[in-house]
Nucleic acid binder design. Structure first.
Lengths: 142, 142
DNA sequence: AAACACCTTCGAGTGCACTTTAAGTCAAGT
DNA sequence: ACTTGACTTAAAGTGCACTCGAAGGTGTTT
């Protein structure tokens, strides 16, 4: 054991994980996180919870929706038998995120070219003010 | 000249650029695009407009908001004197997009690790079911 | 003649993820 | 005593970017 006995009330916990107390209660309502209560019915959280919320934020950060997150949590609660499905959810999320990045990169490429054009690094003699776009059609798979 | 004399009505144009007619009218209301009208007051668009909408979609694709897009359009209408500001807007958008990608990559790294963990490629003997997170704290600058 | 595509204004609806308020209670700290 | 922070439920508000519908019109095509 490290120091897993530390307790945090919602306000402190909110600061630790970078969410508002509103959001934490909302996530609890949604079933994404759970909290224990002291004898006064006041929520408290532990370092475990910090890690769990951290993980949730990573999943959200890759674009996973609340609904999928709920599903994931439900599966997790059902034990190891659901690992294949959970793995599959993560893989799908990963694929989507990678596709998003690829698309973003493509759009960025156009932006960079336009900035270069503003900087005079690219041929200015073309009449059409947006014809750099033509040049970049080759990257355009959409 | 290539073949810049082709005219498209809104329905056809919508299909060409991948937006709905609703959205095209909405963008026009917002001042992002303009259309010419025939003698019956029916909108028509040209190949120029396809390129312009294409550019808009690239900017949106990098995360630029409608409001900023409006500002950009306004500046563009004011002529070359506003090029520095426009360039700066693009640079800012670029920076933001690059930051988004970096963050996404970081979250993805966690996801990939978790998938590996599910696949048994990573040590399974750790008791804490989410402790892979600890391992990745090093990437966590947020 | 009916269907279809276009036009107008303008307000309401959608989806997502919060965010806030209201209204009342409880308890610890300064 | 008062402020601060916690608690409850339920509902309304926010922001963004559409998306749609009503209601009435014109014009072209089948």
């Amino acid at each position: 054991m490290v120091e897993t006995d530390r307790h945090y009330r919602i306000g402190e916990f909110a600061k630790l994980v970078g969410l508002s107390t509103y959001t934490l209660r909302y996530y609890e309502d949604q079933g994404l996180i759970k909290s224990r209560r002291d004898d006064k019915d006041v929520r408290y959280y532990t370092d475990q919870d910090i890690r769990w919320v951290g993980f949730i934020l990573h999943l959200k950060g890759t674009g996973m929706r609340l609904n999928d997150l709920k599903r994931y949590v439900t599966l997790r609660a059902q034990g190891d038998a659901t690992i294949p499905e959970r793995r599959e959810m993560l893989r799908k999320t990963q694929d989507d995120a990678e596709a998003d990045i690829a698309e973003l990169q493509m759009h960025l490429q156009v932006l960079r070219h336009k900035i270069d054009w503003y900087d005079g690094k690219v041929d200015h003699t073309i009449a059409d003010s947006e014809s750099f776009h033509d040049y970049l059609q080759q990257f355009n798979q959409e």
